[in-house]
Amino acid sequence: MRSAADPTERRRRAMSAFAQAPAGFLEARWPSLADGRTIVPVRGPEVGLVMVRGRTGGGGAAFNLGEASATRASVRLANGPVGHAMILGRDLEKARHAAAFDALWQIDTCQAAVEREVVAEIERLIAAADGQRAEETAATKVDFFTMARGED
């Protein structure tokens, strides 16, 4: 288990957040954070498939459950690093911006702002949606009670 301070773990967490951003979220935040940097395509964005695997019995040997559509992109920021992204679904612009944010995250002077205003914000949105759904599910929890029986 990598610690949360580990750069690889932090990038992994950031990329996972970009991939799960709501539609339009990344595009909307790009202008204010990118400081005029242009996004140069390296590969894609292109649509393809990811084979999703399950485990026999839930925890045993892997098997192929079925595929899911996915979009991947790699971009370079002008004179800057290359960023990568893969997301579920077929949102080309989202994939392109996810790759761009991955690149922006790699620039030391931008990283803190990206983590604060994009990564943390997406995680907050996801947690809020998950929390609401969990509460709605919890309200359907069965509270068993024992009926009085006829014997002593």
């Binding site: 393809g48 498939l49 990811v50 084979m51 999703v52 695997r53 399950g54 485990r55 595929e67 996915a70």
Partner: peptide
């Protein structure tokens, strides 16, 4: 439609024990 697309990757096996449970 599926046959027209390349396969990018294979996922790690999903962890149903860590599911966000709805039922």
């Amino acid at each position: 439609y599926r046959t027209t697309l390349p396969r990018f990757a294979v996922s790690l096996p999903i962890e149903t024990g860590r599911m966000r449970i709805e039922r």
